[in-house]
């Protein structure tokens, strides 16, 4: 029982940042804008969250600030891909560069040339805090957000509009829906959510920003979006699955382990590919995903 609880809580811990990022990806891509820059946005969120929490002394303020920083950075992506009709993949690659570069650059500026921030004293609170079952509040928040986004997407007219814009912008436009407006909101919201994902790393899992604290989570989140077939709850489960396979590799790792470390370390990635092949098959993205919309006059 104890080991079960340990696996469960560690799984949730690892999956929380991915969930924020993946929800961001779902929101943006459902409206038709590919967001490959989640990794860079998460770095930015992670840095801003850790430094605001340090200077203000309040982790919650840092958490929100991380989200806002992500939102601000994604404005660049929104402007480029929605209004300037840029190639969304290229713009996303640029965002990754800018996000990871800027976060380390600013870190050196505010923390005497060091590339790590000073550790914060108070991390975000935990909702359970036993020795082998501790759950961060970010786990709860990410779960609630997934439910909320599912509700908005499938039970409200706003969700219908977002999906319409992502599937067939011309039709949506002819019904009087503001395609660019909705897409802009979605991309910025996507940045906000990804930024929260970065905050969840530096304020709940570790207590400081370092250059390697975001290493691949953004891309994992991207994989979860596709794995989850662009649906919020499926993406949530995909992230939990990734978290679980990460935990498996930790649980079985050790000096007396019967498996060589290389198998355990690569397990999450091999799992992902295997699952994509066996269960998912062709996942079909929103029809207009990646295509900028030009009004025909």
């Amino acid at each position: 029982m104890d080991s079960f609880l340990f696996v469960l809580s560690t799984t949730l811990m690892y999956s929380a940042p991915l969930i924020f990022g993946a929800l961001g990806g779902v929101v943006s891509e459902s409206s038709g804008v590919i967001n490959i820059g989640i990794e860079g946005i998460m770095s930015m969120g992670a840095f801003v969250a850790a430094s605001v929490a340090y200077f203000a002394g309040d982790p919650w303020l840092g958490f929100i600030a991380g989200g806002i920083a992500g939102g601000v950075l994604s404005v660049l992506h929104a402007v480029a891909s929605i209004f300037l009709k840029a190639d969304q993949t290229i713009s996303g690659v640029a965002i990754n560069f800018i996000g990871s570069g800027l976060s380390i650059f600013l870190c050196g500026l505010f923390f005497d040339g060091k590339n790590v921030t000073t550790s914060i004293k108070n991390k975000l609170p935990k909702i359970f805090n036993n020795s082998n079952f501790s759950v961060d509040v970010t786990v709860l928040i990410s779960f609630l957000l997934a439910i909320l986004i599912w509700f908005v997407f499938y039970k409200t007219k706003w969700g219908l509009r977002i999906r319409a814009v992502g599937e067939h912008p011309a039709t949506a436009d002819s019904l009087g829906i503001n395609v660019r407006g909705i897409r802009s909101c979605c991309v910025i919201l996507s940045g906000f959510l990804s930024g929260l994902g970065g905050s969840a790393v530096t304020l709940a899992i570790v207590s400081q920003f370092s250059p390697f604290c975001i290493s691949g989570q953004g891309f994992m989140a991207l994989a979860a979006v596709i794995f989850g077939k662009w649906k919020p709850l499926n993406a949530y489960l995909a992230c939990v699955f990734f978290g679980f396979s990460q935990v498996l590799s930790i649980v079985f790792n050790g000096p007396e382990s019967i498996f060589p470390s290389v198998i355990l370390n690569t397990l999450p990635y091999i799992f992902t590919i295997a699952v994509l092949i066996i269960f998912v098959g062709k996942s079909i993205p929103p029809k207009a995903n990646g295509i900028s919309y030009e009004k025909e006059v």
Partner: peptide
């Protein structure tokens, strides 16, 4: 890192 930013 300014080089990364520049590239981006």
């Amino acid at each position: 890192e300014i080089i990364n930013i520049m590239m981006g």
